[in-house]
C-alpha cells in the first residue's frame, strides 16, 4: 500500500459530558477511497468532525500529511488541504450555486477547466448555476456540497453519507461520479449503504461503539459475507 496520509491514534472525543470516541485508530492511505462503515450512532460523524477540528480530541492524536493537527483550529485544518462534506451538507441556501463554489475556491476564482470537469459528472450544477442553492433538490444539494469540496485540488476529502435520502437512480449517478473522482483524489467516505461502497472502496474500516472494530481491504470484506454480517449486522439487511 502507498504512504499514509492521515493517521488517528487512540483518539478520544467528548461532547459535553458524553464520551463518544473511545480510542479510534484509523489510517487513511494516500490515493483512492477509504470507506468508514458502522451502524447508527457508531461515531462516524464524530470521527470526521474530530479530524476537521469541529470537536477536539481529549486524548490521542490526529496527524495529517506528517504534521500534528489534533488541536489545530478548523480553518487551519482546512487550509492544510482537507475538505469536508458534512452529513447535513452545509449548503448556504441563501447563496447561489456559483457563490457556494466561489467561497470554496480559496485561490480567488473558480478554475474553469476544473469546473468543466465537475460539470461532467454533476451536470445539474451547470443548469442551476445561478439559482439559490436552497431551492435545489436533496440530490442536487449533495452535488453542490461535493463540488464545493473538489472545486480546488485538496489532499483529502471527507464525505459523510452522501447517499442519505437519495433515490436509487441518483445513487447510481453518485457511484459514477465517485469512480471519476477516485482517479485523482483521496477520499475518506462514511457510509451505511454497503452496496454503494463495496464496489468503490479500496480500504475499509468498520466502527462500533466509538472504536474501530475492523480494518482491511475492501475486496476482502466484499467477498466474506460472514464477516459482513458479523460487523455490519442489521445495517446490511436494512439496505438490501
Amino acid at each position: 500500500m502507498s504512504e499514509t496520509l492521515l493517521q488517528l491514534t487512540g483518539v478520544h472525543t467528548h461532547i459535553g459530558e458524553y464520551h463518544i470516541l473511545q480510542g479510534v485508530d484509523l489510517t487513511v492511505p494516500k490515493d483512492g477511497i477509504t470507506v468508514l462503515l458502522g451502524r447508527n450512532g457508531a461515531g462516524k460523524t464524530t470521527t470526521l468532525r474530530t479530524i476537521m477540528g469541529l470537536w477536539h480530541a481529549s486524548r490521542g492524536s490526529v496527524s495529517f500529511n506528517g504534521s500534528d493537527i489534533t488541536q489545530a483550529p478548523t480553518p487551519d485544518i482546512s487550509c492544510a488541504g482537507i475538505a469536508y462534506v458534512p452529513e447535513s451538507m452545509g449548503i448556504f441556501s441563501d447563496l447561489t450555486v456559483r457563490e457556494n463554489l466561489y467561497l470554496a475556491a480559496r485561490q480567488g476564482e473558480i478554475d474553469e477547466k476544473r469546473l468543466e470537469w465537475i460539470f461532467g459528472f454533476f451536470a445539474a450544477l451547470k443548469k442551476f448555476w445561478n439559482q439559490p442553492a436552497g431551492t435545489l433538490s436533496g440530490g442536487q444539494k449533495q452535488m453542490v456540497a461535493i463540488a464545493r469540496a473538489i472545486v480546488e485540488p485538496r489532499k483529502l476529502i471527507l464525505i459523510d453519507e452522501p447517499t442519505k435520502g437519495l433515490a436509487p437512480a441518483i445513487i447510481q449517478g453518485m457511484i459514477a461520479a465517485f469512480r471519476e473522482l477516485k482517479a485523482t483524489e483521496t477520499i475518506l467516505l462514511v457510509e451505511q449503504n454497503f452496496n454503494f461502497v463495496c464496489s468503490l472502496g479500496d480500504t475499509v474500516a468498520v466502527m462500533d461503539g466509538g472504536r474501530i472494530v475492523h480494518s482491511g481491504m475492501m475486496s476482502e470484506l466484499a467477498e466474506n459475507r460472514d464477516r459482513q454480517h458479523k460487523l455490519l449486522g442489521l445495517s446490511l439487511d436494512s439496505h438490501q
Binding site: 445539474a124 431551492t135 433538490s137 440530490g139 442536487q140 437512480a169 441518483i170 449517478g173 461520479a177
Partner: peptide, 14 residues
C-alpha cells in the same frame, strides 16, 4: 445515466 437523472429534474422556481 448520471446526466439524465441528475440534470433533468424539474427546474425549481426561484
Amino acid at each position: 445515466t448520471t446526466q439524465m437523472t441528475l440534470a433533468d429534474a424539474e427546474l425549481p422556481k426561484v
